[in-house]
């Protein structure tokens, strides 16, 4: 178990800069999720921590030791790859024992470790199978087993669930989280799926274009997104982000809708953010025309048009309207997010 510090990490491929000075502090035993859209540099950062990519600038320390020039095998880390990278010509047992075999561990200890990991992951019956004889979820578990037997200081996961179907993904999500809590090993997990990030992380690091947009606890990011990018990225369905300006005693969107502002609001508001779930049906609300109604059972998502502005609302109530009907909705003024012209959150 160890801490991981990334200080001003830079990465360039040729003249293309991928990471522009990234700082991340990871406490011992913490589960950190790096999340962001494709190409934001999150996988590159993970591979730099693993030692599979060299570090163009800055430094990375594991357990206080700077590892910039330490080869991957001496960093005491284990990684689960997106495609699992199981050795196809080895059985599950051989796959899991490979690192110990290279380290010339005695056969008895190897078998004991493999059995222990297999028990944790429910792979006991599959030890003599080849990877091709396993289902996606089982392969995923073998990849984790290969990581567990090494007792590494840090686990690295590179989008491990992206090849699984939706149901299995939810199941493996909780299995990974549970396993991490049991082993209490520092874990860095890369995903582009913000729901995975929200449900699994102790700390989320939102990345975009090679920079960190915001880092913090999942709910802190949800409640107080630092800028427009985080506001739009975290939360599902996504937050309504409506450009416009303060006028006419409220916020006039460029589409023409007039939305109420919280008291003492800043006058320099350029974007008005409200999450769909923070709107309620109210007779004294803002009128909109229904475009689409999507019932999910537990709630109903309604897309409506206010002037030219399209707003999404999610309501606990069952909305009976049809496209073209009028609906009045009211944003919860305590949960409105206001952003300045530079995209940064305005203090409320």
């Amino acid at each position: 178990m160890a801490t991981v510090s990334v200080r001003q990490a830079l990465k360039s491929f040729g003249t293309t800069r991928i990471l522009h000075g990234v700082d991340v502090e990871i406490a011992d035993g913490e589960f950190v999720v790096l999340v962001g859209p494709s190409g934001c540099g999150k996988s590159t950062l993970l591979r730099m921590i693993a030692g599979l990519e060299n570090i163009t600038g800055g430094e990375i320390a594991i357990d206080g030791r700077v590892v910039n020039n330490v080869p991957p095998k001496d960093r005491d880390i284990a990684m689960v790859f997106q495609n699992y990278a199981l050795y196809p010509h080895m059985t599950v047992r051989q796959n899991m024992a490979f690192s110990m075999k290279l380290a010339k561990a005695p056969a008895a200890i190897m078998e004991e470790e493999v059995q222990r990991a297999a028990k944790i992951l429910g792979l006991d019956a599959l030890l003599d199978r080849f990877p091709r004889q396993l289902s996606g979820g089982q392969r995923q578990r073998v990849a984790m087993g290969r990581a567990i037997v090494r007792h590494p200081q840090v686990f690295l996961f590179d989008e491990p669930l992206s090849n699984l179907d939706a149901k299995l993904r939810v199941q493996m999500r909780s299995e990974i989280r549970e396993l991490q809590q049991r082993l209490a090993t520092t874990t860095i997990y890369v995903t582009h799926d913000q729901i995975e990030a929200m449900t699994m992380a102790d700390q989320i690091v939102v990345m975009n274009g090679g920079r960190i947009e915001q880092a913090g606890a999942p709910l802190a990011l949800y409640d107080k997104p630092a800028n427009l990018f985080v506001a739009g990225f975290i939360g599902s369905p996504a937050m309504n982000l409506l450009p416009g300006m303060v006028a006419d005693g409220g916020f006039r969107t460029t589409g023409g809708a007039l939305l109420p502002l919280p008291p003492h609001a800043h006058t320099n508001v350029a974007t008005y953010g409200i999450r769909p779930e923070h709107m309620s049906l109210s007779d004294d609300g803002v009128e909109g025309t229904i475009v689409l109604v999507e019932p999910t059972g537990s709630e109903t998502q309604v897309t409506m048009r206010m002037g030219e502005t399209v707003v999404t609302g999610a309501f606990r109530e069952r909305v009976q309207g049809r496209p073209g009907d009028k609906l009045r909705v009211l944003p919860d003024l305590g949960l409105v997010h206001l952003f300045g012209p530079d995209g940064a959150r305005l203090p409320s």
């Binding site: 693993a50 030692g51 599979l52 080869p71 991957p72 095998k73 880390i77 284990a78 990684m79 790859f81 997106q82 495609n83 990278a85 050795y87 490979f98 690192s99 290279l102 380290a103 290969r146 090494r150």
Partner: peptide
Amino acid sequence: ISPSLYEAALLDGASGWQ
């Protein structure tokens, strides 16, 4: 041969010969 197998082996501690 998938490059990720070599990366996995690298992390498992395999030398070039191994």
